[in-house]
Write a protein that binds this DNA or RNA. Structure first.
Lengths: 275, 275
DNA sequence: GCCAAAAACGATCAAATAAATCAATATGAC
DNA sequence: GTCATATTGATTTATTTGATCGTTTTTGGC
């Protein structure tokens, strides 16, 4: 699939289940996970290493612990811990849409940040108004270009004329937008007025696909301000907690809808002492 | 059987965390680390011994302290902990130059960050290419405008055409620049080439005073790239560890020099009481 | 100063864990 | 179907860790 980072569906699923375990217990051990998921220990280790590379967990000898990101918890309007699992699987799928050597536009919000985690060390250019992006990307080799502008602390985003001016200099191959509300009736809606202009401009500066990412709780929701109309969007990536009826309505508009499974249907045969 | 160091990933990472602790506190204790990292004390001891063997720390009975090498620092370009006391005092003085309702330009680097800390909750506008500024300013009410551009992780700064374009839209009342070297002979010099253009442009976009801040270790030093000539600078703020002879040479060029007193050797036990 | 108790240390060893390599299997593109 | 790639596991080898020893250093009383 992709050159550097192509986690298949089953693999991604299993890794997400590690996260739910971690959220419950704080730490996991390699041996336990191997037994619980009926895979070898080396596979678990590989999984945990990958999660560590994404900055979600911290390895220790024999297991891993959930990395606690303080600072960000209360700041964000949209709480990072909320729907963290859904956002991560959505982020993984969205990241697969980005091919090598492309320039991708990302807007603010925690879902976009989840995508960023899966874009680490890729040979791409990332353009974003997400002021948390530098810290998130860390020492990754991916090229990061930050739009300027006024800083809004609650959403950790940059907006205003300067941001739009910078955006006008950019030609992108792909645009991935997080949204506070996605509805067949009202299109994409946003909770911050200043973001609407950014989002619209991002779509405008993008030659290729426009992808919207939103966890299930946002499907059918309408936020405060009208953003991008649906006919300018090509793909919606969401998760299986989304309302099925609304998804059908969205599909009816011609939108390609990708639903990520977050709740385990394919449970491993042997699952002893968890839950 | 690694290239130079037979330390696996997990061990190496834990040791790095010791270093960040050390940079924050100066010293660490074996028992504390053992508890913090959930490993046995003997493991911590082995780690510290290894760090000591690499010359990064100095062991003492029960713990270790950070050894500050004055020569070459390849790990971090500008170590935040190094001269932290001096930078803070300088930051406080520099912040006093900013009056209400002004727009102030700040460049990258840790000294600028120290100024930012003293500008919290002021009724001003801050324009900067320092990507660490948003996190530092937090919920402050001061208005923060970030220049866009390419992100450089080592210096946490933004640079390039986009940054310059954004800067060209700004009119500032004041400009405060951190610099890697300040010398009567070579003027202001910078360790990152891309920063020189930013610094020059900042001076250009500023109607009022141009203030240079640099801790004592940088006075008389010449870094890699020529930045702003001294005749475009009005004020230099430094500390009492600066070389007096060089300061006189700088005064001779017409520069107004402000020297902040830094009390005796900073002992780990007795913490200074600013703020 | 001296001495004893407590804490920290170092060496050795065994068990657990991780890393590297290679081969088998599954997956998806064409 | 073929092909390329991704995923996984078996095997072997190396690393990491903690327990248990005895030794050294520090601490606090005298």
């Amino acid at each position: 699939m992709n050159s550097s980072n192509g986690a298949g569906k089953i693999t991604a699923q299993r890794r997400l289940k590690y996260l739910t375990q971690l959220e419950k217990r704080g730490t996991v051990r390699v041996v336990d996970l191997a037994q619980a998921f009926n895979v070898s220990e080396i596979t678990v280790r590989r999984d945990l290493d990958e999660l560590a590379r994404e900055g979600l967990v911290e390895r220790f000898h024999g297991g891993a612990r959930l990395v606690e990101r303080l600072g960000q918890e209360t700041l964000f309007e949209d709480k990072p811990r909320l729907h963290a699992v859904e956002k991560d699987v959505i982020g993984a799928v969205a990241a697969d849409f980005v091919k090598d050597d492309q320039t991708v536009l990302l807007n603010g919000g925690t879902t976009s940040l989840a995508i960023l985690r899966h874009l680490k060390d890729r040979n791409i250019r990332i353009v974003t108004n997400n002021a948390a992006a530098p810290a998130e990307l860390g020492e990754s080799v991916a090229e990061l270009i930050l739009l300027g502008g006024q800083y809004r602390n609650k959403s950790r985003s940059l907006y205003g004329d300067l941001a739009l001016l910078a955006l006008s200099q950019v030609h992108a191959s792909l645009c991935i937008l997080g949204s506070n509300g996605v509805s067949a009736r009202t299109g994409l809606t946003t909770s911050v007025y200043a973001e609407t202009a950014i989002n619209r401009m991002m779509v405008e500066r993008c030659k290729g696909d426009v992808i919207v990412v939103a966890d299930g709780s946002k499907i059918g929701a309408t936020s405060n301000f009208a953003g991008v109309p649906l006919d300018q969007v090509n793909v919606l990536i969401t998760d299986s907690t989304a309302d099925e009826e609304e998804l059908n309505a969205l599909r009816a508009t011609g939108l390609r809808v990708i639903v990520c499974q977050v709740d385990g249907e394919a449970l491993p045969a042997a699952r002893p002492h968890y839950e």
